[in-house]
Amino acid sequence: MDATPTTPYRTAAAIARAIATIATDSFGPTPETLRTLGDIARHLSAAADVFDAYEPITIPGLTGHDMPVEAAGELWLVEELVFDRPATRIPADITEYVKAPLTGRSLPFPDPLNPLNDRDTAKEKVLRDALEQLHADTARAAADVDGWMRDVLEAWKQHMRLAAAVYADQMRPCNQP
């Protein structure tokens, strides 16, 4: 395996570690949420360690990068934790950022919220545009993984807060058909 930090496995490890650090630095509304953030960080760190030590399988004629089974298991646990605990304010698709260097898939993007008022529509546009710009900034993503990932997660966190507000607005009796 190429030991340079630009290999897909090293990139995946760097992204996993950046998210783990952010999860560790995050605050939660309850002790349970804080424990979950710690668990998320531990599983991401474990996945990063696997990526760093991984010797990829090369098969002539096959393109792409294989996913180490142990790392896939750790990432699956992260997915379960963030799905079960939305109070972490970590998006359910967060592991797609880690997997992207190996899979070549597009980075995750939030579904449209379809707010009922112009103010929330404008906020959503600003957040979606910011996330789109962050996703397109591949130079920064490569040079400053930690800072880039912090900005990405902040955009997601703000979008998740807006989504909760939009949902509450849509559920108000006066907005029901």
Rank of each mutant, 00 (worst) to 15 (best):
E32D: 14
E32V: 03
T33R: 00
T33K: 01
L34T: 15
R35L: 11
T36M: 01
L37M: 11
L37V: 06
R42W: 00
R42M: 07
R42S: 13
R42C: 05
A48H: 06
V50Y: 02
F51D: 06
D52P: 01
D52L: 10
D52Y: 03
A53L: 08
A53T: 10
I57R: 14
I57S: 14
I59L: 12
I59M: 02
L62G: 00
L62D: 03
T63K: 11
T63N: 10
T63L: 00
G64I: 05
H65K: 14
H65P: 05
M67I: 14
M67E: 11
M67G: 08
P68L: 02
V69S: 15
A71G: 08
G73I: 08
G73D: 15
E74W: 01
V78T: 02
E79D: 15
E80T: 15
L81G: 13
L81N: 11
L81H: 10
V82Y: 07
V82M: 02
V82F: 01
D84G: 06
D84L: 12
P86Q: 06
A87Q: 13
A87L: 05
A87Y: 00
A87K: 11
T88Y: 01
T88M: 01
R89H: 09
R89Q: 10
P91S: 07
A92H: 08
A92C: 02
A92P: 00
I94W: 01
T95I: 07
T95F: 04
T95C: 13
E96N: 13
Y97Q: 07
V98T: 05
V98K: 00
A100L: 00
A100P: 01
P101N: 13
P101R: 12
G104Y: 05
R105I: 03
R105F: 04
P108W: 04
P108Q: 09
P108R: 07
F109Q: 10
P110H: 12
P110K: 14
P112C: 09
L113F: 07
L113R: 08
P115F: 02
L116T: 05
L116K: 12
L116N: 04
N117R: 04
R119G: 03
D120I: 00
A122S: 08
K125C: 08
K125G: 03
V126S: 09
L127T: 13
D129R: 15
L131I: 09
L131A: 10
Q133V: 07
Q133I: 03
Q133D: 11
Q133A: 15
H135I: 05
D137C: 08
D137P: 05
T138Q: 11
A139R: 14
R140M: 07
R140T: 15
A141Q: 14
D144I: 04
D144S: 14
D144R: 12
V145C: 04
